[in-house]
Amino acid sequence: MDRKITRPVAPLLWLLAVSCVVLLVLPPSSSMADTGNYVGSETCLECHDDIGPAMSRTVHGNLQAYQYPGEATGCESCHGPGGAHAESEDPADIFKPTADNGGAEKCLACHKTGTTMNWGTSTHAENDVACLSCHQIHIGTYGKALLKAPQEQLCESCHQDVKGKFQLPSHHPLKEGFMTCTSCHDVHSGNMQGIAEGEMVRDACLNCHTQYAGPFIFEHSPVEEDCRICHDPHGAVANNLLKQNEPFICLQCHQPHFHTILAGWEGDYSAPPGVVDADPGYEGLSGTSHYDSMKRSMLTKCTQCHASVHGTDLPSQTITGQGRALNR
């Protein structure tokens, strides 16, 4: 299989050119030019000896000089110059980042790229969630992200309605521990959908359900629109995370087959021999019918026949259906 690297040359060159101009024109960030009476972390730890050992076991406690954005290193890179505080021992004389006082700006002084690049315009920031709402800095726990609690607990503390959905009979395996909220969501993202930057909602689904990526010849248009038209990714009563069970989910956008208004024959039946004789593999087909059997067949689960509901390249059988019935 031949692979070609896509080259969207013109827009990329345009963006690179803009980037270069910006880089050349703008002066360095003010965060690199902090001034004040710095005393060094050793001075801090003379009193705050409870923090030192724990902090030394975190990435933050082991940063190299080149990893600091300004001249200040160690404790003072976040807390600012500590000279006055060391002198007075007054808590008011040192900056203590909190969720309410712009603590995020201290974090973003280093975390300028990656997913946190978008934090400033993220939905969480917009709603007064701060870095310290979820993270703690001095103690290395709950993985490399320095979370204050296991991820699910943190998310559920605000999104309690979502927690309940994961108890429904059909759910992604979050409570089983095989997924986390961040398997789909980018909590730092500025994307309006709460997923990774630059992605549409269906892209987040297709990362794992890639078999439905296509693009296919015969499409089901809501699949191209938004998976959530039919599915609730957090949990549902109906199987396969369907927002309503079939056939109701389908009947909201489709009319039932006209065969559904047929009355059914009461009794057993079998396929006429003349029909199946040419294909011996199908002899002996039989069934039992009741008055409502036509309805029961066609108004119970649409995907029994329309199995390729996410799209396919294989045409269905009828010409009048133009191959698009998603039966194959």
Binding site: I5, P8, T210, Q317, I319
Partner: peptide, 26 residues
Amino acid sequence: DIFEDVTLPYGQSADSEKDVHNVAMK
């Protein structure tokens, strides 16, 4: 019918590929 009296595949999921270039600046 488009086809009849024939053996054909169904339930196929086609191989696919995706390339993404992203450049971002803050």
